[in-house]
Design a binder for these strands. Structure first.
Lengths: 343, 343
DNA sequence: CTGAAAGCGCTTACAG
DNA sequence: CTGAAAGCGCTTACAG
């Protein structure tokens, strides 16, 4: 006797449901579901009626209900090592730009370069039944790999090209890139080239291998000088490492830094200390980050296609999630040596 | 006759469910649900048994089922203008760091400083029934506000303190900060101070108001010189704007840039052009971004508490989502003028 | 090409 | 403090 009808036991959320659209269009809910998803053939005329009704009512499918019924959400989990590196933020941005218009939502997991954190993130994300997965690099614990494989969730690895590991990957050869920039230094007449790296992830190490290979190829294997620091990368650290290298190995006439932030810091430190670049020492970086072209002198570096990697990986994942064939499971997007005045 | 039992009509996903835990613990599913969520009183002994069973079975609650049943997901949508600004990435990182351990997932929406994009993002996110919302700034379309209010989803605004707008906010006074750094310039004896800004969002404009107020207070209202560009902020633009200002208004002896990237670019351009800083012109920035302390000379700027803003906003949202009282709905976290050698 | 039934895995709203 | 029933809003698996 409380008033209008339907006021008992109602858990209704007030939202427009599939059933509402079905009623308005004069068809069954399943038909609405199929028409709206474009799944299976629905008579064109019905299709039209359903779309019109959905639009008129302002129907928005409930992702939770859809996920529960289909046991697959509209989420794509993206695992990156850090948010403080422009590289990964650019990658993420590009991924989002192609996934969001396709109706997917991105879930970000930051792993801090830790295998344990990656595993934990994977475990938690997989519980959300993501439709897809994008992970950084090819190096991960066996447990993490098992988690991914066992889940059956399509996964694309980014930044490196991992043909050997199977699966799907989009990136470029870190080794070749390291080799190319070192070769550039050699070509400009440098003989005592050091490789300075921080935040020793596998990609950093691979660039070091490329560096060593270039020296070996030039018959300078005995002059290899890799200065590695496990500290996080920063401009301040770059400056400090420049000083250290020139102190420990004064004959050094060129330094290849594993990342532009280190190189930018080194350039600024050189300016402060009155060390001529490239006169006394040539400086090269990696990634072509914002600001590298503004340095004094402008920084010679390797431009990496992180945005395109993100876009292509997302595109590949889209195909996998839709069950469409992927013609090339491993995409090598290359890199570009950008010669500026610092080397 | 196909073999083992239970092979018909099964849509089972193989995952461990609440029912499995209930059976193992010898209680009803609702009791498990309550014990695990800590909702309502459950006998301590039962609670323990349930926890043990859940752990033994490796039970992970299904977020989709939970969202559908409770009409509230474990997602928090965060709307920021851009991913290319370190400021917002730091904010995001801090938000994630406090929300993820609390069991929430962050959904990122990038609005590109566009009211229309913000509205669209809001519409799409709200369909996901987020548990909470974090949005940047207090300026948004009436439609966007209506969307937020109408949804009933708890929302915290960040970066500015918006007591007037009601609701909840965490940030600092952009106006006061602009005023403080300008005062710093005045105190060091500068008389012809320009304010140079790009990417004219409301906060940038507020800083400009603070700048104007400081000049007015010093009796220099007639020397106000605001040079505004709607272009996106960048180091290169900062260099170009420095040149333009010194050309158009040669008497200028100090420039307050609305963001450190512009200021850093200006500093580098000054070095390139042989313009003495602070001798010929003092330079100040805003935000204290990475690299500002490495510049030549190091950049005087305003350190903004973006990480703490993110953390506190997340904390506040956590309370709102749990229905707990929030003692201070508007948190002013302040800022700090960092005096270095450029001004 | 269309539909009636059942179910996805939880929580709400009532009882006791 | 505990539970049996119903329901959240979709899609799957069968039929026709």
């Amino acid at each position: 006797m409380a008033g209008a009808a339907g006021a008992r036991r109602s858990r209704s959320t007030g939202r427009v449901t599939l059933a509402d659209v079905a009623q308005a269009a004069g068809v069954s809910p399943i038909t609405v579901s199929r028409a709206l998803r474009g799944e299976r053939a629905v008579a064109p005329e019905l299709c039209e009626r359903v779309r019109a009704a959905a639009a008129a009512l302002g129907y928005v499918p409930d992702p939770a209900a859809r996920a529960l019924a289909s046991s697959r959400s509209s989420h794509v989990a993206v695992l990156i090592p850090k948010l403080s590196n422009t590289l990964f933020v650019d990658l993420l941005d590009a991924v989002q730009n192609t996934l969001v218009p396709a109706g997917y939502q991105t879930l970000i997991g930051v792993t801090h370069y830790s295998a344990a954190e990656e595993e934990a993130a994977l475990r938690s994300f997989l519980a959300h039944r993501p439709a897809g997965l994008i992970v950084t690099g090819s190096d991960r614990s066996a447990a993490a790999c098992a988690l991914i494989d066992g889940s059956g969730v399509p996964c694309v690895r980014v930044m490196e090209v991992g043909r050997e590991e199977g699966g799907y990957s989009v990136g470029f050869s870190q080794r070749d890139a390291g080799r190319a920039i070192t070769q550039q230094l050699l070509d400009s007449g440098r003989q005592h080239i050091a490789y300075v790296a921080a935040q020793l992830d596998p990609r950093t190490l691979e660039r070091g291998e490329g560096y060593a290979a270039a020296l070996a190829h030039a018959g300078l294997a005995d002059r290899t000088n890799q200065v590695l620091s496990a500290e996080p990368s920063s401009m301040a650290l770059g400056g400090a490492m420049l000083e250290r290298v020139l102190l420990d190995a004064p004959q050094t006439d060129a330094i290849f830094f594993c990342n532009d932030d280190l190189a930018q810091g080194a350039l600024l430190a050189a300016l402060r200390l009155g060390i001529a670049v490239p006169g006394r020492v040539a400086v090269a970086g990696f990634n072509d980050l914002p600001g590298s072209d503004q340095m004094l002198p402008p920084l010679t570096t390797v431009a990496t296609p992180r945005r395109e990697i993100g876009a292509q990986a997302a595109q590949m994942l889209l195909k996998l999630m839709r069950g469409q064939p992927v013609d090339a499971p491993h995409l090598d997007l290359g890199f570009q040596v950008v010669r500026r005045a610092s080397a």
